[in-house]
Write a protein that binds this DNA or RNA. Structure first.
Lengths: 102, 102
DNA sequence: CAGTATCCAAAGGGATACTG
DNA sequence: CAGTATCCCTTTGGATACTG
């Protein structure tokens, strides 16, 4: 039942959608993700990105632009989640169809 | 980015570990799951099981014993999560090794 | 055994304003 | 743009006691 610990790193309402966004576009900026993930606040996004970075799932790069932009990409380790996220997405779509009938 | 909606049904700290428990043993009783999932309280387990049942991922059966026992199994639809949960477990184990070094 | 009920502390998280 | 800070309400969830 060790999934528990695994999921801690992906816990909360937002981590999977955030990773999905970065995953889908390969690289993504703060404000992009803010738009990609419906309902998230800048405060939450900031907090979640920080946690994902600490857990070495994403990498943060400050670009030397004016004003500065920050780019997020998956780490090599984060990439190993791609398949699972794809499966979850597919499952979610079929689940909606099955239960909610959307 | 539709994962968001998909995950709602699996949201919270406990749903995945609960499903894992039922999944692993095929059928599982309330008190068994209480033991399987470290840290969960009976209140939370009760609440989460109810939600999983509403979302048609698990099926609840009251057995005619004295005192009564209640058995939980995955529904056919819940079974479709097996692969994903297995992958998440595997990912979690490798993640722990990689980051936390346990 | 399988829950429910209650109390209450802690964490989550939105809205808004502000900064380098 | 990419955050941080603050205020404050909402949700989560532990501990404990109780019921059929």
């Amino acid at each position: 039942m060790g999934v528990h610990d695994a999921m801690d790193v992906l816990s909360g309402k937002w981590k999977i959608p955030i990773i999905s966004s970065i995953c889908y576009y390969n690289e993504r900026r703060f404000s992009d993700i803010l738009n990609d993930v419906p309902g998230i606040s800048n405060k939450m996004l900031s907090k979640e990105l920080k946690e994902l970075e600490i857990n070495k799932l994403i990498k943060r790069t400050v670009l030397d632009t004016q004003p500065i932009t920050v780019q997020y990409v998956l780490t090599e380790h984060g990439e190993t989640l791609k398949g699972i996220i794809k499966d979850l997405t597919a499952w979610g779509i079929s689940h909606r169809k099955k239960i909610i009938g959307k």
